[in-house]
Simulated scan of single mutants.
Amino acid sequence: MERKKKTGFARYINLVNLGVFVVVTSVSLPIYWLVISSLKQPVAIGASPPQYIPSPFSFANYQQAFSQYGFSQYFINSMIVTVAATILVLGLGSLAGYGLARLPMRGKTTIMLTLLVISLFPGIAVIPPLYLMMRTIGWLNSYQALIVPYTAFNLPFAIWILRNYFLGLPKEMEETGRIDGASPLRIYWSIILPQALPGLFTAGVFTFTACWTEFLMALTLNNSNSFRTIPVGIALFGTPFNIPYGTIFAASVVAVVPIGILVFVFRKSVVSGLTSGAVKG
């Protein structure tokens, strides 16, 4: 009987491993094909049969993306907008999350439900009024035209994550600070915030990714080439009669690098923030 249980458990583990292998392979193959296609010469991208390994390797697509299509400007624009919005979201979200988690106030449930509804609201529904508002105040084709909406749309989700993470922190630290005469703001800055770094990293990674890959607002609010971000810039590569697939692949690879580095560097903190704080209510 015991032998049958071990055999059944071993089969279950094998099935799980097989499922993981299938998922990882299905996710990795498009990324692999994107990278190798960016290293091919234009005539080899659509070759039949396809080349699974570029021969020879060519970095001409990367050079063309930066020299001919101005990808460096798009990269700088995306970095400015995304970093600024992420910093604002973390600053405002941590303050709001701490207040909702620890400070006495009425209507906390209503506030959290409102934030949830806002976070689920489709962004396309607010594009027309947002465009009219930005045009009225003269913010079209500017960095703040994207920084402010990105902050507003990503703030509710960040507050949810950070508020739930703050709830998971022990209250003894705050009580010690109050005994020493520290104000709530001092307790938040000196005691709570250093303990909440995994939650901050989790909210930061999600916010950075959402802002970095956003397309519709960037296309609508910034139609000047000087303020276009990476998603819009790549979408406008080439002409209707000439689509530079290799250059698009190369630019896409470069665009993925910051997110990949961010996730790799903070992967442990993100997992810790999701498991120990973000799923608690």
Results as ranks from 00 to 15, higher is better:
residue 33 W to T: 08
residue 4 K to S: 14
residue 10 A to K: 15
residue 88 L to K: 02
residue 39 L to S: 02
residue 169 L to P: 02
residue 80 I to E: 11
residue 244 P to C: 00
residue 232 V to G: 05
residue 178 R to I: 10
residue 163 R to W: 04
residue 129 P to T: 11
residue 27 V to I: 11
residue 142 S to D: 04
residue 102 R to T: 04
residue 107 G to H: 02
residue 192 I to R: 04
residue 166 F to L: 09
residue 214 E to T: 06
residue 119 S to Y: 07
residue 87 I to F: 05
residue 161 I to F: 03
residue 276 S to G: 10
residue 228 R to M: 12
residue 182 A to Y: 03
residue 262 L to M: 11
residue 212 W to K: 12
residue 246 G to C: 08
residue 234 I to M: 03
residue 208 F to C: 06
residue 113 L to S: 12
residue 116 L to M: 14
residue 155 L to D: 05
residue 95 L to A: 06
residue 194 P to R: 10
residue 105 M to D: 01
residue 42 P to M: 08
residue 68 Q to K: 13
residue 272 S to P: 03
residue 50 P to W: 09
residue 66 F to D: 02
residue 123 G to H: 15
residue 217 M to A: 04
residue 113 L to K: 09
residue 195 Q to A: 11
residue 2 E to P: 12
residue 84 A to P: 02
residue 256 V to Q: 00
residue 32 Y to E: 06
residue 71 F to V: 07
residue 80 I to H: 09
residue 4 K to I: 13
residue 183 S to H: 01
residue 228 R to C: 04
residue 95 L to V: 13
residue 3 R to H: 15
residue 111 I to C: 03
residue 180 D to I: 01
residue 145 A to T: 01
residue 48 S to L: 14
residue 134 M to N: 02
residue 101 A to H: 00
residue 246 G to I: 13
residue 91 G to V: 13
residue 222 N to W: 12
residue 48 S to N: 13
residue 66 F to G: 02
residue 115 L to W: 15
residue 218 A to W: 13
residue 145 A to E: 00
residue 240 P to C: 04
residue 77 N to Q: 08
residue 5 K to S: 15
residue 254 V to N: 01
residue 254 V to F: 10
residue 106 R to G: 10
residue 69 Y to I: 08
residue 201 F to P: 00
residue 33 W to I: 06
residue 186 R to T: 12
residue 138 G to S: 09
residue 131 Y to K: 06
residue 36 I to P: 04
residue 56 P to W: 12
residue 191 I to V: 10
residue 236 L to Y: 02
residue 72 S to G: 14
residue 198 P to S: 07
residue 193 L to C: 06
residue 168 G to K: 04
residue 161 I to L: 11
residue 192 I to M: 14
residue 98 Y to D: 00
residue 72 S to V: 11
residue 104 P to Q: 01
residue 188 Y to G: 00
residue 179 I to E: 05
residue 264 F to S: 09
residue 172 E to P: 11
residue 164 N to I: 06
residue 215 F to D: 01
residue 109 T to K: 13
residue 223 N to A: 11
residue 99 G to R: 02
residue 21 F to C: 09
residue 188 Y to P: 02
residue 54 P to I: 05
residue 230 I to V: 15
